[in-house]
Nucleic acid binder design. Structure first.
Length: 468
DNA sequence: ACAATGGTCC
DNA sequence: ACTCGGACCATTGTA
């Protein structure tokens, strides 16, 4: 029982069910405080008493199983945090210098184009320059004035090159400030590694979150993002990286939870789900271009998020009416999804909460609100949570199993990171085959749904190389 | 210290 | 006129 374990436990209850009795927790805190500097034994005694009491107060067996899951996950996360991940500091600095150089050039280019120096990092000053000094037409408004975000500047960029340069400058500055300077700051001087903290109850759906630093939003594209990601690597040449990620896990979960025959069939036939939706939306005999597939993919994802025609129209850049037709077409193709959603909303209305396959709950008070907007937002949360939350449960269970496996066999390989549907391992040369087989069988085997889960595995000398 | 804005990820 | 689900963090500018 380490301090890390205790710190985590202090927060465990509320994420599972707010209606749980907290008195046992208070007892634990008290015991912890009074015994902290005395003997380890009394801490552990208080800890077990608390856990037992927590279990007793959670009479619902499904809730108990979630508490059990989180309890077992906690030491796994603690170990991943303690292990940390190595990052090549010298390489990261070198990339930072390249970015800084390019960024400086963009900066000067902007001043030249505008004929004036200003702080490009200030949205307010960018507004003034674009909309007042240069009299560029406003494309999008926000509470306090005129938006200069990505969407707005991309639109303006069709006619005014200055907007594109500002976007490029921003991208570079984002990489430099957050992912070069930000990561350099948190390299532990003793271990030379980065030790994130996983929050077990940061997310309302049951996902983990990662902070100080957040290693769940490391950029992933080509160019600088790939170079930054390649700095994450094993510290020794005897090891390589293994990345295992669930393929379309949320859509597969939706198929299993809804029981929709057509959706299940799509996956059973190993069809390209986005292409199939595209064929249905645009006609069986239409050639499915990458553009049509992209639209269908957005529709598929939109359905998971509790889509509206308006929201989808923004994403795929079309009219709300057309987007609404796509959504209706999706439900026509997969009618079981619509009825499943209705049952979720009915349950939310009746119980005030929704739950995952494993019984994790999220309270959704907004579904009973008199305000239509609040109700609509609550309904999207209600629809999304069982899907996103079940995916979170699944990977948590897989992590527990992987940890047990590694421990039982005294392997040298270690689990390093979790990025929602992806696990990153540092794998010893001698364990490559067994690790690849085990990771796949455990991750794919956790969930007993109608649709089999599929895991893609990639290996490489660093995080970038081991990415699909 | 905190709100607003913007950007990165799944 | 209008919001797609879930997070964390950097910077600016105001209090």
């Amino acid at each position: 029982m380490s301090f890390l374990d205790i710190r985590h436990y202090k927060y465990l209850t509320s994420s599972i069910d707010r209606n749980l009795d907290f008195s046992a927790f208070m007892d634990f805190e008290h015991h912890y405080q009074v015994s902290e500097n005395k003997e380890q034994y009394s801490i552990e005694q208080a800890y077990f008493a608390w856990q037992e009491s927590l279990m007793e107060s959670a009479v619902d067996t499904r809730i108990r199983s979630v508490i059990d899951m989180e309890s077992k996950l906690l030491p796994v996360l603690a170990e991943m945090e303690r292990t940390g991940v190595y990052i090549d500091e010298g390489q990261l600095r070198a990339i930072g210098e390249d970015i800084a150089r390019e960024s400086k050039n963009k900066e000067l280019e902007i001043y030249d184009l505008v004929g004036e120096r200003f702080n490009i990092n200030s949205a307010k000053q960018v507004q003034t320059i674009l909309f007042e000094k240069l009299s560029i037409p406003v494309s999008k408004k926000i509470k306090t004035g005129y938006s200069v975000d990505n969407e707005a500047l991309s639109f303006i960029g069709q006619k005014y090159e200055i907007a594109n340069i500002i976007l490029q400058y921003r991208t570079l500055e984002k990489l430099r400030s957050t992912y070069i300077d930000g990561l350099l700051k948190v390299i532990n001087p003793h271990t030379k590694r980065i030790h994130t903290t996983y929050n077990q109850l940061g997310a309302a759906t049951g996902r983990l979150s990662s902070e100080a630093p957040n290693l769940q939003n490391i950029p992933s594209g080509e160019g600088y993002p790939a170079r930054i990601k390649s700095c994450f690597r094993p510290s020794s040449s005897e090891y390589s990286f293994l990345v295992a990620d669930y393929s379309q896990v949320e859509l597969r979960i939706l198929a299993s939870l809804s029981g929709d025959v057509s959706l299940i069939e799509t996956f059973e036939r190993w069809e390209d789900i986005h292409a199939r939706t595209a064929r249905f939306l645009f006609g069986e005999h239409t050639t499915i271009t990458s553009e049509l597939r992209r639209i269908a993919k957005s529709v598929n994802f939109g359905v998971i998020y509790g889509i509206t025609g308006f929201g989808l129209s923004k994403v795929i850049n079309t009219s709300p009416a057309e987007a609404t037709r796509y959504i209706d077409a999706f439900y026509a193709m997969y009618p079981g999804v619509r009825s499943y959603y209705q049952s979720i909303l009915d349950g939310a209305q009746k119980n005030g909460y929704v739950e995952t396959f494993y019984g994790r709950r999220r309270h959704i008070p907004g579904v009973r609100d008199s305000n239509k907007m609040i109700r609509a937002a609550a309904e999207r949360e209600a629809i999304n949570m069982p899907i996103q939350g079940t995916a979170a449960d699944i990977i948590k269970l897989a992590m527990i199993e992987m940890s047990d496996f590694l421990k039982a066999g005294s392997y040298h390989s270690r689990m390093l990171l979790q990025v929602h549907d992806e696990l990153v391992f540092e794998v010893h040369e001698s364990e490559k085959d067994i690790m690849e087989a085990k990771v796949r069988s455990i991750m794919e085997g956790v969930f007993p749904g109608a649709v089999k889960l599929l895991v893609d595995i990639h290996t490489g000398t660093n995080w970038s190389e081991a990415k699909g």
